[in-house]
Amino acid sequence: DLPPEQWSHTTVRNALKDLLKDMNQSSLAKECPLSQSMISSIVNSTYYANVSAAKCQEFGRWYKHFKKTK
């Protein structure tokens, strides 16, 4: 379990794929700090720029909290 400071584009993509087993992209976009188009691009590997470090950390913090509450 990585601390949010160490999250990267790959970590975010893997976490998104895991979350999308249980929910669809639009529900996920309402919950998490990423937009639906960004989620779609990341999981389909069409998001060519890497997600910014700040966004990765924000998502990492959100993901840890989300997993605790589920």
Rank of each mutant, 00 (worst) to 15 (best):
W62P: 00
Q25S: 14
C32A: 04
S41E: 13
S41C: 05
Q6Y: 10
W7V: 02
F66P: 01
P33V: 01
N14G: 11
A49N: 10
D18V: 11
I42N: 01
C56P: 00
Q25N: 05
A53T: 09
S41T: 08
M23T: 06
L16G: 01
T11Y: 04
W7G: 03
L34S: 01
V43M: 12
S40Q: 13
Q25Y: 09
L19A: 07
D1A: 04
M38G: 03
S40N: 09
Y48K: 11
P3C: 11
A53E: 08
E58L: 05
T69W: 05
A54M: 07
F66W: 14
N50W: 06
D22M: 08
L20D: 02
S8N: 15
S35E: 10
I42G: 01
S37D: 15
Q57M: 13
N44M: 11
S45F: 03
L28G: 03
Y63D: 00
T10N: 06
V51A: 03
N50Q: 12
H65G: 10
S26I: 08
Q57R: 13
T69M: 06
T46Y: 12
Y47C: 13
M38Q: 15
S35P: 05
E31Y: 06
W7S: 01
Y48C: 14
P3T: 10
A49T: 10
V43I: 15
V12R: 00
R13L: 06
N50S: 10
E31N: 10
S27V: 12
K64I: 15
L28K: 01
N44D: 05
V43Q: 03
S35G: 08
S35M: 00
T46R: 08
A15I: 14
E31V: 15
M38W: 06
H65W: 10
C32R: 00
Y48R: 13
T46C: 10
D18W: 06
K21I: 14
D22K: 11
L16V: 14
F66M: 09
N14M: 12
C56D: 00
E58A: 02
W7D: 02
S26W: 07
C56T: 04
K30F: 06
D18K: 12
L20V: 03
D22W: 10
D18N: 14
A15Q: 09
W62F: 01
K67Q: 10
S45W: 05
K64R: 11
L19S: 01
K67H: 15
Q36K: 10
T69F: 06
R61Q: 13
L28F: 09
K55A: 09
P33C: 04
K64T: 10
K67G: 05
T69A: 06
S40V: 09
S41F: 09
L19H: 00
S35I: 00
L28Y: 02
C56W: 05
Q36A: 10
G60K: 08
L28D: 02
K30S: 11
Y63G: 01
Q36V: 12
M23S: 07
Y48L: 11
K70L: 03
D22F: 08
S8H: 03
S26L: 11
P3F: 03
L20P: 00
A29F: 05
S45C: 14
K30D: 13
N44R: 05
V43W: 04
D22R: 09
V12W: 02
E58P: 01
I42M: 12
T69Q: 08
D18R: 10
L20S: 03
S37G: 12
C32G: 05
Q25K: 12
H9L: 15
K68M: 12
A54I: 07
F59E: 00
W7E: 01
Q36W: 06
S37V: 10
S26T: 14
A15W: 03
Y48E: 05
I39Y: 00
M38Y: 07
Q6G: 06
L20F: 02
H65L: 13
S41A: 10
F66S: 04
R13V: 08
A54E: 12
A54V: 14
I39M: 05
W7H: 00
D18Q: 12
N44E: 08
K55R: 09
N44V: 03
L2F: 11
N14Q: 12
K64Y: 08
Q25D: 11
K55T: 14
E58Q: 06
N50G: 12
A29W: 06
F59N: 02
N14C: 11
H65K: 07
T46H: 15
E5L: 06
K21Y: 10
Q57G: 05
T46P: 11
K64P: 02
Y63H: 03
A49P: 10
S27M: 14
W62E: 00
K55W: 03
Q6M: 15
A53I: 11
K21A: 06
R13T: 09
V12I: 14
I42Y: 09
K21N: 12
N44Y: 03
S35T: 15
S45N: 15
M38A: 03
H9Q: 12
A49W: 08
C56S: 03
S8W: 00
L16H: 00
N50D: 08
S27L: 11
T10S: 12
Y63E: 03
A15G: 04
A54C: 05
L28R: 02
S37P: 09
Q6D: 05
N14S: 11
P3M: 14
S45T: 14
F66V: 09
K70Q: 11
L28A: 03
W7L: 02
T69G: 05
M23W: 07
W7I: 02
R13Y: 08
A49K: 14
P4W: 08
T11M: 12
L28N: 00
H9G: 11
Q36H: 15
K55E: 14
S35Q: 04
I39A: 00
L20M: 03
T69Y: 03
H9W: 14
K67V: 09
A15F: 03
E5S: 06
Y63N: 03
P4M: 09
Y48Q: 09
S26Q: 08
S45H: 13
S37I: 11
K55M: 12
D22C: 12
I42T: 04
N44A: 07
P4V: 10
A54L: 07
A54G: 07
L19Q: 01
P4H: 15
P33M: 02
A15M: 04
A53M: 13
A29V: 10
M23A: 04
K21S: 07
K67M: 08
N50I: 02
I39S: 00
I42D: 01
S8F: 06
K68I: 04
R61I: 10
R13W: 03
R61K: 13
R13M: 04
D18G: 09
I42H: 00
P3Q: 03
V43F: 13
P4G: 10
F66H: 04
P33L: 00
W62A: 01
L16C: 06
E31A: 07
T69E: 14
A53L: 15
E58I: 04
K64E: 15
E58Y: 00
L16D: 01
V43K: 06
K68N: 13
T11L: 07
P3A: 10
M23R: 07
T11R: 08
E31G: 05
